[in-house]
Design a protein around this nucleic acid. Structure first.
Lengths: 339, 339
DNA sequence: CTGTTAGCGCATTCAC
DNA sequence: GTGAATGCGCTAACAG
């Protein structure tokens, strides 16, 4: 049977509340070293394990946080998750992970589920498309922080990367390499990340006098298949671009597959820059020029923000942390000679 | 303020226990439809959310399971984690994920942590090297299932892949392609996966009369760096092998890096088969011949086993599920002509 | 210095 | 058919 405080109390002759005090080393220093040691010894001998569930219930504090992301098997999110887990462990928190699959309905369900189970706070990479339930979290003073994606018009705390800038820089680099017609495989347009990237792309196209055309921005999904479809479409056009900027891990795999199937080579026939896993990118065929995210840093920052928010009892500060990405140049971009 | 059963009881004029019965649709069907509906309406209007923490405490059932793995950012584990999460969600379970970083000390800490918090069961990819605490879990009738790695001499339930066979098949294929001197970059020798792979490798080497040499089995870590180091060492030898079998995701990245740095080409100078992420492998430079794991299947099976074990209250069945891997042939293996 | 009491929110047993 | 009482294990007042 499980050994409880009461059990130990019975065996030591002191009251269970005293046992609790001793075992938690709570303030009361006026307990004689003798009883103290005795109780500790007995507890150790019985292999006493505090029932954290009862404790959490009593204290209304579970030391658990929820992480709600679209896909744990996407290396961006698993990288961030890893970093968050490491941080939270250091601070005595447990991490409950949920996968939404970009399904907003499921996301909301998960949030409620977590809340009902009493998580102390939430880290969410929202599927977006609806901010009502997020608004609701704010009103209820639930401590939470957004990661990667943000609602621009909501006063939420968030940790995102500078998508506007990273897309701009990518286009700028392609332009410097002589590209004038650049396609953008975009991803779900509803996401703040995608919006900002499109903005950055458009700004750069404008600033550098590159070819502007709606058909150059394509795609809407987040799967390998949707990357494949978009690439097939854009590359089959009579005036296909000479370079592609691809906005996601899985999309990129699909795009590469499409390029290969069309019998084209990177970068001879088409140049490529991708938002992609930078640990793997050097080893792709060919090594891919990528926009790399500081995953570890993002994980640490988002957890720290959340902890702050928990300590503030959810009172919104709306701290928006924006981290920098890095354009890592690799062989997938060719220099074009314009005759 | 949080709305509780008592609250609803006060507003509806029935007792909180009745409210509980109604809201849970518990057996008692003899509650008149009228009160029933009334209570439900009020509950809905107040946006009643059961305090799952209190419920879990009362019922001694958290509907939570713990997943303890070395590294969530390793695509093997994140793939399995994703599958487990999907399954557990379907069955109303939450998933708490912990990263051990192959640190057995941390692993044990985590297990205790989870247990103290009352998880209903555990899925563990053990760091091995010590099976005492696992033994302890068995004695305490804790429901748990091992994933990927198993203790051969312990009566635990587990879901693993047939490592012996997969390594054997890989060597067999290399042999068919004309290779006679095959190196094995092995990983942590303490892991059951690695042991079995070494066995398979050795058996095949013997069966096909390939070159046997201790120096051909090398490595001991699980990081990119250790893969790199091992590859540098084995490739720098005067009689380097013509093919390499690499035993892990991260190791493989290190090995490829080493090969590249040595100015060698795959497969012209060295052939490669790897235990690696099969979603990415086709897009590596060059497309990699891999041993692919059925991640989804493994996740489903391990969760189902755990559920069974939970229902059996931890009474060990020692069900050992072994899934098959698939050797996926790609360009990284060259045919050798033996003159 | 330490015991007593109370209660977190819920589900269950036993009455009536 | 439903209310009352009880307790899960713990901690935090409040006594004494």
């Amino acid at each position: 049977m499980k050994v409880t405080l009461k059990e130990i109390a019975k065996l030591t002759g002191v009251h269970s509340s005293t046992v609790s005090r001793i075992l938690r080393d709570s303030g009361d220093l006026n307990i004689p070293e003798k009883t103290r040691q005795h109780v500790k010894d007995i507890a150790a001998k019985l292999d006493y394990r505090p029932n954290e569930l009862a404790r959490a219930f009593r204290l209304k504090k579970t030391n658990t946080i929820g992480l709600i992301i679209p896909d744990i098997s996407n290396s961006f999110f698993s990288g961030v998750a890893r970093s968050i887990e490491t941080e939270s462990y250091k601070k005595g928190y447990n991490l409950v992970v949920s996968n939404t699959n970009e399904d907003i309905k499921k996301e909301e369900l998960y949030v409620n589920n977590h809340l009902n189970r009493g998580v102390d706070g939430l880290i969410i990479a929202p599927s977006q498309g609806d901010s009502d339930y997020i608004q609701n979290l704010i009103e209820r003073n639930i401590p939470f922080v957004l990661i990667d994606r943000d609602f621009i018009d909501l006063e939420t705390s968030s940790v995102t990367s500078d998508n506007q800038k990273s897309a701009y820089e990518a286009v700028e680099y392609l332009q410097k390499m002589g590209h004038k017609r650049i396609g953008f495989i975009s991803g779900r347009p509803i996401l703040s990340t995608i919006c900002r990237r499109v903005e950055g792309y458009k700004n750069a196209v404008q600033d550098f006098n590159l070819e502007q055309e709606n058909a150059l921005i394509i795609g809407g999904g987040y799967t390998i298949q949707s990357g494949y479809d978009a690439a097939i479409q854009i590359l089959s056009a009579s005036n296909a671009p000479s370079a592609l900027l691809v906005s996601g891990n899985l999309l990129t795999i699909g795009v590469i597959k499409a390029i290969r199937e069309k019998g084209m080579s990177i970068p001879q026939d088409i140049s490529l820059i991708a938002y992609m896993d930078s640990r793997l990118a050097p080893h792709l065929d060919p090594p891919l020029c990528t926009i790399a995210h500081p995953l570890e840093e993002m994980g640490i920052k988002v957890f720290d923000l959340l902890l702050e928010s928990i300590e503030n009892e959810g009172k919104v500060e709306g701290t928006k942390v924006v981290v920098d990405t890095e354009l890592i140049k690799r062989r997938s971009v060719a220099k074009i000679n314009n005759f």
